[in-house]
């Protein structure tokens, strides 16, 4: 707990130094050559990769690019590969790396922009469209009238799947996606599961089959569970992919 901490902020000598190595490359600049650059900085208590990168950027290298928005683990902007593992940088504390050496790479499988910055937004929007990530219904809602009742447990179950933040980590942890660009990944399959269990949505299994019934969809998944094991929101991807697969083979 913070108040019990024996460390003091002004006592810089008491802290260790850490080395952060960052992949540097700009796809915009023609003669840019990919390289790795190492920054050495003092690790302050409670330091996250967000704090560390902002420090590097504002005091050591103003030209370094990366993406942060909420810095609280809810917006999904700052996914990157930390010592081999795709993670949310803002939720990664530097003190979990005992040797003080951290290597940061941009998220693979997405279009690279510069350094640690990749384009997840356009891919995710395209995925959302491909999965038709919206309620399909013929019912016309009168917004002045009392809403349609939903069983509390069902609402909770939908919410549990709706928590996906489209951070892209499931894709970056997925061997299928690494090999096959068109694979829609856990994010896409989970999205269909979310609507499949939502009572507002009237789509049939046949209609969902049209979205994910091929090797770019649920049948492309090899169940390697990279998604399940790296998802920063702990979504039940393992059981939901299986759920959709069972549904789809019955179609």
């Amino acid at each position: 707990m913070i108040n019990k901490s024996t460390q003091k902020l002004d006592n810089i000598e008491g802290y260790r130094e850490i080395d952060i190595t960052v992949f540097r490359y700009s796809s915009q600049v023609k003669d840019s050559k990919p390289e790795f650059q190492t920054y050495r900085l003092v690790e302050t208590p409670g330091m996250t990769l967000y704090i560390a990168l902002i420090k590097i950027w504002s005091t050591m290298d103003h030209h370094l690019s990366f993406d942060f928005v909420c810095r609280a683990g809810i917006c999904g902007s700052c996914s990157m590969v930390v010592n081999g593992k795709p993670r949310l940088a803002c939720k990664t504390r530097t003190n979990e790396f005992e040797d003080g050496k951290i290597t940061l790479l941009p998220l693979p499988t997405f279009k690279h922009i510069k350094d640690l910055s990749v384009d997840t937004g356009n891919w995710m929007n395209a995925m959302s469209k491909q999965m038709e990530s919206w309620i399909h219904t013929k019912e016309v809602t009168d917004i002045s009238a009392i809403e349609k009742p939903i069983e509390p447990d069902v609402a909770q179950a939908v919410f549990d799947l709706d928590r996906c933040i489209e951070c892209g980590i499931c894709l970056a942890s997925c061997s299928t996606k690494i090999m096959r660009e068109d694979f829609v990944g856990a994010v896409g399959i989970n999205r269909t599961a979310r609507f499949a269990i939502d009572p507002h949505d009237e789509r049939t299994d046949e209609e969902f089959y049209e979205l994910i019934g091929d090797d770019e969809g649920v049948f492309g998944c090899m169940s390697l569970m990279g998604c399940e094991d790296h998802c920063p929101k702990d979504l039940p991807l393992q059981s939901k992919i299986a759920y959709m697969r069972r549904k789809m083979v019955k179609v």
Binding site: G84, K85, S175
Partner: peptide, 16 residues
């Protein structure tokens, strides 16, 4: 696949 697997060090991916 190979490079990714080596980076990821993830047991189920290694099993594959």
């Amino acid at each position: 696949y190979r490079t990714h697997r080596k980076l990821l060090k993830h047991s189920d991916t290694n099993l594959w």
